[in-house]
């Protein structure tokens, strides 16, 4: 375990040296600042009397600030889930290929660290970095909306943990792909494709119903079974952010399935890593 953490810490230090961390936190700060300056919420006595984004009137209906915040949180959660996933897939695409770069991998393998520890350590390191970024964004947004509306809700913070779970599956696939093709763009592409597949898998029944009955429909339907339901996780994240009820059994199955899939992808990567010669 100590070796795992050392690899993860090494990755964090490497990211800091490459100013990757600065880029991540700078981007989040930029988004928060832009939102803070452009979002005008006119709250009077606990009721939202109007809202504008970049000067454009979004709504002039008078609703309770709590209810309005619920809608805003839901929209922000969806945006953060999908937008954040795309951003992080691109931003994290070169960690794994970098790990395997000639010179560096030989150096790492000469250390008393097992290959699987290198793999899982890198994974944990990236997830640690991303967790910090997500936490920073969620706290920032909660504070921003809290200050603007006077309503303080932990929904966004809790919802963002589901977002992290979704990214964990994406990054597991990205890391795995890097062990087959050492390319940042292929790794990023695998993450983006996984995101799309994850949304499609969330509507597996209805979407495969559009195909003509037969072998193709059966194959597609079964191929999508182990794919994490990222669309379902996004909805879960949005509902948690909006403080709406969620089905506990469904939520835990979605989360567990996503976790198991991530570990499966890492196990596949470990199998490939064990067979590689450097």
């Amino acid at each position: 375990m100590r070796q795992l953490l050392r690899v993860a810490l090494d990755l964090l230090l490497e990211a800091t040296r490459r100013r990757w961390v600065l880029g991540l936190f700078g981007s989040i700060t930029l988004v928060l600042t832009a939102l803070g300056l452009s979002l005008e919420l006119d709250v009077v006595d606990g009721a939202l009397a109007g809202s504008k984004l970049f000067g454009v009137l979004l709504s002039d209906d008078v609703v309770s600030a709590h209810r309005a915040l619920s809608g805003v949180s839901q929209a922000v959660a969806y945006l953060a889930f999908y937008g954040g996933a795309v951003f992080l897939v691109v931003a994290c695409s070169d960690f794994a290929p970098e790990l395997l770069s000639p010179g560096r991998i030989e150096h790492l393998l000469s250390l008393p660290v097992a290959r699987w520890q290198l793999l899982f350590g890198t994974y944990l390191g990236v997830l640690g970095l991303v967790s910090a970024g997500i936490l920073y964004g969620a706290v920032g947004l909660t504070a921003l909306l809290g200050v603007k509306t006077g309503v303080w809700s932990p929904g966004l913070l809790l919802g963002s943990t589901v977002g992290l779970l979704g990214f964990a599956a994406l990054y597991a696939v990205m890391l795995c792909s890097a062990f087959f093709v050492r390319s940042a763009s292929v790794s990023g592409g695998a993450g983006a494709a996984m995101l799309g597949l994850g949304v499609v898998a969330s509507y597996r029944e209805s979407l495969t119903g559009l195909l003509e009955p037969g072998l193709v429909r059966t194959l597609v339907s079964w191929a999508l079974v182990p794919v994490p339901r990222l669309g379902g996780l996004a909805t879960m994240s949005a509902r948690i952010a909006a403080e709406q009820a969620i089905d506990g059994a469904v939520a835990s199955r979605l989360a567990a399935g996503c976790g198991l899939f991530s570990v499966a992808a890492l196990a596949l990567a470990a199998w490939r890593f064990e067979r590689m010669d450097f």
Partner: peptide, 17 residues
Amino acid sequence: GAAVLLALAGWVMLGAE
């Protein structure tokens, strides 16, 4: 292990559909 975990993930998520 990857195959078993993948199958397990599928089984778990089928129950959420």
